[in-house]
Amino acid sequence: MTIADVQKILKAELVCGGDLSAEVHNACGSDMMSDVLAFVKDQSVLLSGLVNTQVIRTAEMMDMLCVIFVRGKEPTAEMIELAKEFDIVLMKTPLRMFNACGLLYENGLRGGDGI
């Protein structure tokens, strides 16, 4: 699916971005950044309920294309600046983590670990 599809599925609001037509296959959902950094499997989407600049930096270190904030969390101005610098798409969805991940999984996104 594309990032635009992700946005539609999660009823997410675009905060800033980038190329919405980019294809994505794998995602990762966590509030612990070292957990995200532990498993590089070409995930291109990060879902998180954590709001600070390190979420954007973590996504950049992993070469991710899109970060989605769950539970309606608002990224700060500093985070938006950083995301623009790294060309990362930011979105926010009112959905909670479990439902957001579940919907994306149901629509074909995977964790990148072969399951």
Binding site: M32, M33, S34, D35, L37, L50, N52, Q54, V55, T58
Partner: peptide
Amino acid sequence: LGFGAGMG
């Protein structure tokens, strides 16, 4: 802050 998982 999203760290302290003991994974670093």
